[in-house]
Design a protein around this nucleic acid. Structure first.
Lengths: 221, 221
DNA sequence: CTATTATTCAAGTTATCGCTTGAATAATGT
DNA sequence: ACATTATTCAAGCGATAACTTGAATAATAG
C-alpha cells in the first residue's frame, strides 16, 4: 500500500515507457521482433558493446517487455508476447502521425519524390500466389537465412545498386525488411524507383507478416 | 537525412516514449483525458508547481501527445487525439499484464480480498436503461460537474464511508472514476464491499465511456 | 580441476532530467 | 500606458541514466 498507491502504480507504468525511451533499446526490440537472439548476436547487430547491450536487455526485462532463458552458456532473449510488438507499433504510429520531424526524415530517404502507398500484407500474399510479383528481402543475409517470405530474394541494400540492371523493368517489385522501425525497405524502394523500376514497400515487415499467420520459410533459427 | 536517418527516426520514437516515462506527466495526461484544462487547473489537480507543470506540458506537446490553444490569458491543453489515449491504455495493459508489482499494488487496495470482475461499459449502459443499478461517480465534485454518466451520483472518496449506511444493501452498485489510471473506483469498491454491499467497478472511466459514444451529461466545461 | 566462453556485475564519468526559484513575456482591463 | 493575471523562460542543484572499463559469475569442454 505504501504512502501513495496511486504514485506507485504510475511509477510502474512509467517504468515500461522509460524502457522504450532509448533508441538503443528500440533497436534491440526491433532485432528481437525478428526472432529470439543471444546477447552477443544482439550486440553485433546493434553495434553496442556486450556489457552495454546486457544492461539494456536487463532494463527491458525489468519492464517485462522481453524475457530470457538459458541455453547452455548463452542467455537467449525474446519478446514477451505480441503486446510488446503492439506497443512498439502504436508508439511508431503516434510518432509518425504527429511529428513533422519524422515526416521530414522519411521524405529525405526518397529524395522528396513520389512515395507510393505500401502494399498490404494481404495483397502481397495474393500476388505471390498468382506469381505476379517479385519480392525482395532487404535484410542482411543471416536474417534472411533465419526465415523469410517464401519466394523472396535476398537483396541486402549494399548489393541493390549492383543488381538493378538485371531486373525486369516491367516486373512489379515489393520490398520488405525488418518491420516498421526499419528503413531498409524505404531506401531500397527509393533506389529502385530512381532507376525507373516499379517498386513498392510492404506494409510492415517479417514480424508483422508472421503475426498475421502468413507463411514463413524458416531456416536455421 | 543527417549521418544516420535510422537513428534520427528512433530518436523521435524514443521522444514519445520518454514523454510517457514520468509519473507526473502520466498524471497530467489522465487529467486531460477528462477534458481540456488550463495550466493552473492542471497544477492544482496534480500538486505540481505552475512552472513545473508548464514544463511537463511542453514536453508532452513536443511529443505531440497534447496540443494547446490560447483562450484569452489562459493556455488550454488537450489530448491531441484518441491515439494518445490508446497509447496510455496499451502502456497500462502491458504493465498490468506483465508486472507482478502492479498486481501487488492493486491487490493491496482491496486488502487482498475478493476482487470482482469489472462491469463492461455496454452492460452498464443496458442496466442504467433498466434502472436496475446505482451508479457512483467517485471523482472530485468539480470533475463530476464538468460531465458525468447520466443518473450517476457524485460520491468523492472522502464522503463514501459517511454515506454507506444510507445505501440499500440489496442494490447493485457500480463505481467509476477517471479511467484505468485512476484508483478511486478500486478504493471505493473495496470500501463498499467491506460493508457487505454489492459493489463493482466499471471497466474504464469517463473518457473511455465517452469514447464509446455513450451518453454523457455535460455541465460547465 | 582448469580453461574457455557467454553473460552479468560494479565503479566511475559525462550528460540529461526533474524540480525550484526568480525573472520575462502575453493578453486583458482600467 | 500601467497594472494584473496566466504562462513561459532561464539558471542552478541534486538525482538518475548511458556508456566504458575491468572484474566476477555460470555453464561447458578437456
Amino acid at each position: 500500500m505504501s504512502i501513495s498507491p496511486k504514485l506507485a502504480l504510475l511509477e510502474e507504468y512509467a517504468l515500461v515507457a522509460r524502457a522504450l525511451s532509448a533508441p538503443a533499446r528500440l533497436m534491440l526490440l526491433e532485432q528481437l521482433a525478428q526472432g529470439e537472439r543471444g546477447v552477443e548476436a544482439l550486440a553485433d547487430k546493434t553495434g553496442l558493446t556486450i556489457a552495454n547491450c546486457s544492461q539494456h536487455l536487463q532494463q527491458l526485462r525489468r519492464a517485462a517487455l522481453v524475457t530470457s532463458r538459458r541455453d547452455g552458456k548463452a542467455v537467449i532473449y525474446r519478446l514477451t508476447d505480441a503486446k510488446t510488438l503492439a506497443l512498439m507499433d502504436l508508439l511508431r504510429i503516434v510518432a509518425e502521425r504527429n511529428l513533422a520531424q519524422v515526416e521530414r526524415i522519411l521524405r529525405g530517404l526518397s529524395s522528396g519524390e513520389d512515395a507510393p502507398e505500401p502494399v498490404s500484407r494481404e495483397d502481397l500474399a495474393v500476388r505471390i500466389a498468382e506469381g505476379s510479383v517479385t519480392v525482395l528481402d532487404v535484410r542482411p543475409a543471416d536474417e534472411y537465412a533465419a526465415g523469410h517470405i517464401p519466394g523472396a530474394l535476398n537483396m541486402p541494400l549494399i548489393e541493390i545498386e549492383r543488381i538493378i540492371p538485371t531486373l525486369d523493368l516491367a516486373a512489379e517489385i515489393v520490398a520488405y525488411c525488418r518491420g516498421p522501425y526499419c528503413i531498409y525497405a524505404h531506401q531500397a524502394v527509393a533506389a529502385l524507383r530512381k532507376h525507373g523500376l516499379n517498386a513498392r514497400r510492404l506494409d510492415g515487415g517479417l514480424p508483422e507478416w508472421r503475426e498475421d499467420g502468413l507463411p514463413v520459410l524458416a531456416g536455421t533459427q
